[in-house]
Design a protein around this nucleic acid. Structure first.
Lengths: 198, 198
DNA sequence: AGATTTGTCTACCAAATGGTAGAGACGTGA
DNA sequence: TCACGTCTCTACCATTTGGTAGACAAATCT
């Protein structure tokens, strides 16, 4: 693999298209056109469409894991601050790379093999989050509930907020920098209130 | 339109397929096969694929609006109970008709004309929810924040929980009746905590 | 220099897609 | 009985899809 640049460009472009328009509705030709190359070049770097999808999922998982791992390791003992840091970390791609969470959300539409592929990549960080929430609950520093489902709820809230600007617009929201800052502020307040120990 | 039954069956089936597999990845042949009819019969009842999509969106909006309107009008003065009723109402289709919220969520992937079509149908109930939240905040009976964004956050949380069983499974959740009840319980507690006045 | 590997291309192909044209079965009213 | 509207069908069609085969140029190795 002497020349990685074309490969990387295909990967990046595919992530954007898959994440914004949905995996199933993006053709190899669409990706090739966006990269400025022929479809056969895409099939040279990835042996099939399915192979490309897995590679793009890996690419997305890499990007997400780096961000989340850093936030998890962040300073501060207070759990609400720590969760807050992770929320902000996951929300950052919403601004910088909107397709990223959109692609992760696509998992529901994929077939078993791709689902398992992505699950394998994310399971480590997921388990770490759940066990952290559980331990803080046991210490009475977070509202007591099922940590597993809570983690899912948190994910849904953050991911939904980030991936459904259209829905937010229906609620009257305006999609610009100020609007995004406002959403992030409300999101943090929402999560903080939901986790406050009782 | 003497015989409406074929039309309705197409509508129902299309809603299920669109909602579970995504609008873009379901062909007219897929729908026809599932109904037990030929593609041309589908095109007889709906003049084009795009027309079918709009009709299905209407069908979904009808179903959702009935449920939500009833819950909004529900008894009780305490706002936390009222929001709780709406959450339960929106969550009910998750069990009875999983495709419904999945289809609404698909709006992000549709093109402008379909988006506006659906928005037009949902805007009334959306505005009612937002102004209700605002008035209760002004009375100090809900945590004070931006009611518009809060409505979006609530939607994201409920919809995400209902439409992403795959993600919940990654968090260790088991998709059965008991699991669904547990998710609903946690969801209600989560929302209640997030709205508690400070 | 000559041989080989690497990367992109053109030329195809079979299958699936949304859509058109129109035949035929069926019932209903005159 | 006959004409007419309703409903589903078969037969096509142009376009797009994922994928194969192989030509060709540039770089790399011997």
């Amino acid at each position: 693999m002497v020349n990685g640049s074309t490969r990387i460009r295909i990967l990046d472009t595919a992530l954007d298209l898959f994440g914004t328009r949905g995996v199933g509705t993006v053709s190899l030709d669409d990706i090739a056109d966006a990269v400025g190359v022929r479809k056969q070049t895409v099939l040279y770097w990835f042996k099939s469409r399915s192979g490309l999808i897995d590679a793009v999922l890996d690419h997305a998982a890499d990007e997400l894991l780096v961000v989340v791992e850093a936030a998890i390791r962040s300073q501060g003992d207070e759990p609400l601050d720590r969760v807050d840091a992770v929320v902000c970390a996951v929300f950052r791609p919403v601004v910088r790379r909107p397709a990223l969470l959109g692609l992760i959300r696509e998992v529901t539409r994929l077939d078993e093999s791709h689902i398992n592929h992505l699950r394998g990549r994310l399971s480590v960080v997921v388990e770490r989050c759940v066990s952290y929430l559980r331990s803080e609950m046991e210490k009475g520093r977070l509202r007591t509930c099922d940590p597993m489902v809570l983690a899912g709820l948190l994910y849904s809230t953050v991911s939904g907020t980030g991936t459904e600007p259209i829905v937010l617009e229906t609620f009257g929201w305006e999609p610009n920098a100020a609007g995004l800052r406002q959403v992030r502020r409300e999101l943090r307040g929402f999560v903080r209130a939901a986790l406050q120990p009782n």
